[in-house]
């Protein structure tokens, strides 16, 4: 053991000499030029703090003059960004319910709300195994809703365009979480993926149906 210890020490000392050999008169008492050592990588706390303090959330930037009817929905959606608990998602869903009652006569808005509802239910049931893009889609649907509600004079055609756009995203998302992409889902036992898919499928077909009906009736109306 003793020899071994000497071994490591001499190995180490050689290495240290290699690394930290001082060519210019090692450790002499001759004073060097008294340069003040330059301050190295300082932490730029103060200047960075200003940057960080700027509000960056997209949703917050688009402030409307009057309080939007979507205010509560937005805040519970942002809360979901921070924390995906049953309580937070439940808040979001109950806000959807309120809005569904309020906008029951506006088919486009109603359909988008339904889309939101299916997404939230999907996330609630899958939690950790939900697709990482799910929250992106929730945001996107919200933006669609927000656009429509913020412009009361929007024509039905314009509204339809937005709704169809979101539906397309939803379809693409469904493809992603479908059987082709296994993702994290099958890893956990005890969760009935098929049942969840069924729920989404049902919601989706309902949405499609309504959208089609709506489009037909508009065509007839013209």
């Amino acid at each position: 053991m003793a020899t071994n210890k000497d071994d490591i020490t001499s190995d180490l000392d050689n290495r240290l000499d290699e690394l930290f050999g001082e060519d210019d008169g090692e450790d002499s008492f001759v004073p060097e030029k008294k340069e003040k050592p330059q301050p190295i990588k300082q932490s730029k706390a103060s200047s960075d703090a200003k940057e960080a303090a700027k509000p960056k959330q997209k949703a917050v930037q688009k402030q409307q003059p009057m309080q939007s009817p979507l205010e509560n929905l937005k805040s519970s959606m942002l809360e979901m960004d921070w924390e995906l608990t049953d309580e937070v998602i439940g808040k979001f869903l109950s806000e959807i319910d309120k809005l569904k009652t309020k906008y029951s006569s506006d088919k486009m808005i109603f359909s988008l709300l339904q889309l939101h509802e299916s997404m939230a239910k999907y996330i609630r049931s899958k939690k950790i195994n939900a697709h990482p893009d799910s929250m992106k889609l929730v945001h996107s649907v919200f933006e669609g809703l927000d656009k429509i509600i913020a412009a009361p004079n929007m024509t039905e055609d314009e509204k339809k365009k937005i709704a169809v756009g979101e539906l397309k995203l939803f379809k693409a998302f469904k493809q992603k979480i479908g059987p082709a992409v296994k993702g994290a889902a099958p890893r956990i036992e005890g969760i009935d993926i098929e049942a969840i898919r069924k729920v989404i499928k049902a919601e989706l077909s309902l949405f499609k149906e309504e959208l089609l009906k709506e489009m037909k009736s508009m065509r007839i109306g013209r």
């Binding site: 020490t9 240290l16 002499s28 060097e32």
Partner: peptide, 18 residues
């Protein structure tokens, strides 16, 4: 000035690793 700064450091590494 750097006098014995490196010696101190080397000794500390050496003792610690040993």
């Amino acid at each position: 000035t750097g006098q014995n700064v490196v010696t101190t450091m080397k000794k500390a590494i050496s003792l610690t690793v040993a």
